[in-house]
Amino acid sequence: MSAVDATTDGLAAPKRLKRRVAWWKSAWFDVVQFVLLSGLLIWITWRGAASMDYRWQWYRLPRYFYRVIDGELIWGPLINGLFVTLEIAAWGMVLTLIIGLITAILRLSESVGGRVLAKVYLESIRNTPLLVQVSIFYFVLQPILGINNPLWTGILCLAFFEGSFASEIIRAGINSVHRGQWEASTSIGLSKTKTYLYVILPQAIPLMLPPMTGTLINLIKHSAILSFVAVFELTTEARNMIGDTFMSFEVWFVVGPMYLVLTISLSTLVGWLERRVRRHR
């Protein structure tokens, strides 16, 4: 590091606290910018709606969240839909990770049959539209297998879809651990399974977390597609509501942020998890 760098980087740092920050770099200016921009967006929307004579009816929305009848709290369709979406997300994540792990291990295994099976699954899932897969699961597999539960058919379908991405993330994570780690484990007598468990996965998982979060967020977003096959999740409820009330603007403006809350909470949670896992390095 040169002397110049040292003064700008390290030595000047305490001074910078006292010096006034230029106004266009201050946090206040960021806030003002944000407020102005969102104001502009809202104004454009409002003008657009006004020009097409849209009647805003925000006051009708709350009862679609909840109602209190005879002192009893009853969830409305939006909250019920949210619960179903959460259920899809929770089971979907578990199954996605299981399918991803099994596929990754099959692909990394020495068994030719296992590798071919995994490859066929990956290629067919990743190279066909999700909507077509949902239709195949719902209209073909569901009657053939005699499942009579659109929710579980949907969860399975999503898990198989996202599982293909998860498996690639897991495989890449495992491969990125140096092969010297395998050799050291082997030489102290650890079996393959124990090497995965105690040496490889603990090093690979922190690497997998960021891309895996993306896949799990996709799972939540893609769950909306199940509204095409009679699963009563958030988007289905929203579409039904619009059919009943014609409040399309209000409903989508509320449902969008509801998904945002889900996905952003998830990435915040994983971010926290990641910092915990990485603490020792």
Partner: peptide, 17 residues
């Protein structure tokens, strides 16, 4: 055999975690 043979590598290969 592996139980009776220890090995030391050029790159140490310690478990970093």
């Amino acid at each position: 055999i592996r139980a009776e043979v220890g090995m030391v590598f050029q790159q140490f290969n310690l478990f970093p975690h």
